[in-house]
Amino acid sequence: MIIGEGKPINEILEMILKHKKIIVAGCRGCVTVCSAGGQKEVEILSSTIRLAREKDKAPIEIFETTLERQCDTEYLEQMRNYIDEYEAVLSLACGAGVQFLAEMYKKIPLYPAINTNFIGVTEKQGIWSERCQSCGNCMLERTGGICPITRCSKSLLNGPCGGSSDGKCEIDSEIDCAWQIIYERLMELDLMERFEEVEDIKDWSTSRDGGPRRIEREDLKL
């Protein structure tokens, strides 16, 4: 899923400084699962904002809502009835949700309340880590199911580099060396001969480097 993290509260307060009546909108998708932008975070953020504004003698009225998803027009549409009554929307959705909201409601200022960090997993409660860079051309079948593009700090397709020690990456002793894990996996699967095949220069055109991406499925279009 998409993993996000709340922005520092002062940054948010600064963004909404001039507004007196706003919508704080969460999303029940990925950001709910990673505890960055679900209903609970909407409540906590709204309460925090009210406390801060009360303290500064500049009270603010907040309408709290959490949409099913902010990356689908049908759910964003639900805001149409009341959005005009507010001065701004503070969205706790990922970057995609915030943008889609902006595309739909062109006349109201929109502010992001979270930073969208990566596509990742919940390692355990309270710990998330990155797994996919969405390069658009998956090669996991060749690397024992571990993505070197994402998990090697240098995205080496023919790693490991010379900086790996004790199974950790040179840039941070908390980060596992992806190629150490790939090596271990390939050993376990008895596929080490694959390691010596040179992985060819990658076609990055399916990645962000090829420009903004879109997918069209004729069979699904209405």
Partner: peptide, 27 residues
């Protein structure tokens, strides 16, 4: 492949790694 930019004086920069050292040999 080069040291990661984290070690240098421009750690906020982007890295490229379009190709790696083995692929540079190939090139």
């Amino acid at each position: 492949s080069g040291d990661h930019q984290k070690f240098g004086d421009h750690s906020s920069g982007k890295n490229v790694y379009d190709i790696d050292s083995v692929q540079l040999i190939q090139t």
